[in-house]
Design a protein around this nucleic acid. Structure first.
Lengths: 205, 205
DNA sequence: GCAAAAGTGTTATTGGTACACCCATGC
DNA sequence: GCATGGGTGTACCAATAACACTTTTGC
């Protein structure tokens, strides 16, 4: 092959699936069973099929992994280093996917973003770019994906703080969420907590 | 081929090269010389080579088309519809590139974004997504790419207005640019204009 | 002196920031 | 009654929005 060759390549999608658990931002990783990078952790993903868009592939993979259809996801970057896969040229279309930590009890492969294990391929770079994208694009639509239908405002503040890596003043945060019309009070309150139970809110939009 | 096949594909980059000329946002298009879509307009772009990243390919193409090395560009989306190229499966990594309308006098294939001709492939969709990306991500870094070293503030306002598709109050716009430290006055003024000559400003950052 | 675009200040409103104490519940 | 997190109001400052007339130049 000369440098002028227009080589074909395999097309993969890689999903950086985020959730929030135990006050930390987590990413789903699988252990690799084969070489290369055997026993290292990797992002879930796979090759696209002949009749699929990258988005179709991602939906199929999310169904396999999480067993849900309606998961929020978004392309954020395509990784094209010629040597990123040592076997054969493979470009990867990177996606973020966001899941609410309820209803994922069956999955126990979540790793805190702040202390990731060693990763296969360029997956460390993919995750770090995904997190950066998330931070630069926070919005109520984004944080909504992490929340149950009803939630205490302090839980919502926690999500913003984890994504943006800043702290908010609790009084100002509450005022902003309520006056900007992002959330509204529900008639319900927290149950079975050993402190004053919080009012529950829901997204208005 | 069954639907389970993991087909390889050609990888292309397509560049939506924007500039501002005659108070309008323009895009560079070439006429296709071959089928399919012969004589329709298309975005400049090309296939990536075996030893290139998508970014390398784009740099090479920009050098060929514009003859400059230091052009600002950024990935914004990858297009993966299986049928987007009728010949053979080809995915396209979409880039925006931004050029200052000085020093592009030799290129006369600019088309106003507001009145584009018929386009080959899915290039209409690519351009519309590129424009949306530009609008959602305006920043001083972005507008800077369209400006010469020194410019009147009203010229800068024009760029913001074209990208964001809104109008600014001239007094408030000037105040904001100056007090936020984005620009600074230079000792120079406009020449050879048949009206009051404007002070020239430059980017501070 | 006319056409064309440049340049300028004040006021009102809104949104953001800073800050400390009491409240409701379970154990 | 103590530990735990929930919940609240005010004052100050900064940023934004609305608004109309004068200035400088070339012709």
């Amino acid at each position: 092959m000369t440098e002028k060759d227009y080589e074909k390549a395999r097309i993969a999608v890689d999903a950086v699936i985020f959730t929030v658990q135990d006050k930390s931002l987590k990413v789903l990783l699988h252990a690799r069973e084969k070489e290369p990078f055997k026993d290292k952790k990797e992002l879930p993903g796979g090759l696209i099929r002949g009749n699929e868009t990258a988005e179709d592939t991602l939906k199929r993979k999310l169904q396999e992994i999480i067993g849900q259809q309606d998961i929020f996801f978004q392309q954020f970057f395509s990784f094209t280093e010629p040597s990123r896969d040592p076997r054969e040229r493979t470009i990867s279309i990177g996606f973020i996917a966001l899941v609410n930590s309820e209803n994922i009890g069956h999955i126990n492969e979540w790793y805190a973003f702040g202390s990731l294990p060693e990763l296969a391929f360029d997956h460390k770079k993919i995750i770090s770019r995904a997190k950066h994208y998330l931070k630069e694009n926070v919005s109520s639509l984004i944080v909504k994906q992490f929340m149950p239908k009803q939630f205490p405002l302090n839980k919502l503040q926690e999500i913003y703080e984890l994504i943006e890596e800043i702290k908010y003043d609790n009084r100002n945060f509450r005022k902003k969420m309520i006056t900007s019309g992002i959330v509204e009070e529900t008639p319900d309150i927290e149950k079975n907590v050993s402190h004053r139970p919080a009012k529950l809110y829901s997204f208005k939009i």
